[in-house]
């Protein structure tokens, strides 16, 4: 079954996450035999990339947990396929330099900086209805009251389904509840400081909710601070 799913040799059953993890005993880790970080990331995100999906992905995590890097990765994939990407940036935290370093073509990315949570939700809906294949909503610091209404998410979910696009929600907590197709919890494992240089972060991504597959799978991802040679 694993071979059929393309996972042969990649899954080790029963290896727990570190003991300090709140999800510790429930998840297994996927370790690529090649050790290539891109393989692990793409394995995690591949089913949710591309058009004709209609997915609502939730990326939640704390400080330096790698959730923004995962969103960059999705944006880079969409731009590489020639799709348009909308980035609704409520906290005004998007860094174009970092985005370009991550391989995202800036010329097809629309950056929207709303100042209110309601405007952010409305902007995302407008982008979906226009035909943007991927819409990233960075909702850190959003007014919780506006996000706690079920109508908000049912409306956004309907827009996502009708547009057959992918929407990514970035936040510190889970906000859209059962409307999420995929919920990924990210957590910093350790930061890599080596001889006075900051090399990157080791993060783990755990699938907490999955409408189309199993939950509880954990992935270790190395986020490098340096660009690949060449």
């Amino acid at each position: 079954m694993l071979q059929k799913a393309g996972l042969a040799g990649q899954v080790q059953v029963g290896v727990p996450l570190p003991a300090d993890s709140s999800q510790s005993q429930r998840f297994q880790r996927v370790i690529s035999p090649l050790g290539a970080e891109e393989d692990r990331l793409d394995h995690l995100l591949r089913p949710f990339q591309g058009r004709n999906r209609g997915r609502l992905i939730e990326l939640e995590g704390g400080l330096s947990s790698g959730r923004t890097a995962l969103a960059y990765r999705l944006a880079a994939g969409a731009r590489a396929r020639g799709e348009l990407v909308g980035w609704v940036d409520l906290p005004n935290a998007l860094d174009p330099r970092a985005l370009r370093r991550a391989g995202v073509g800036l010329e097809g990315l629309l950056w929207v900086r709303p100042t209110r949570t309601r405007a952010a939700l409305r902007a995302a809906e407008l982008l979906l209805r226009t035909g943007f294949a991927l819409v990233v909503m960075d909702l850190e610091g959003a007014a919780r009251r506006a996000l706690e209404q079920t109508a908000v998410w049912s409306r956004l979910w309907r827009a996502v389904r009708e547009a057959r696009s992918t929407t990514v929600l970035l936040g510190t907590n889970r906000i859209c509840g059962s409307f999420a197709t995929l919920g990924i919890y990210t957590k910093k494992s350790c930061s890599l400081f080596d001889r006075g240089l900051f090399e990157g972060l080791e993060v783990s991504a755990i699938i907490e909710r999955n409408r189309t597959g199993p939950t509880g799978t954990g992935y270790d991802i190395h986020l490098s601070h340096r660009l690949a040679p060449g």
Partner: peptide, 21 residues
């Protein structure tokens, strides 16, 4: 055909930065 990243393989995952403005 002008996208700088089109057809290019995705590079290894890099760290993102959340700007404080």
């Amino acid at each position: 055909g002008t996208s700088s990243v089109r057809d290019a393989p995705l590079q290894r995952p890099t760290l993102a930065l959340r700007a404080l403005r």
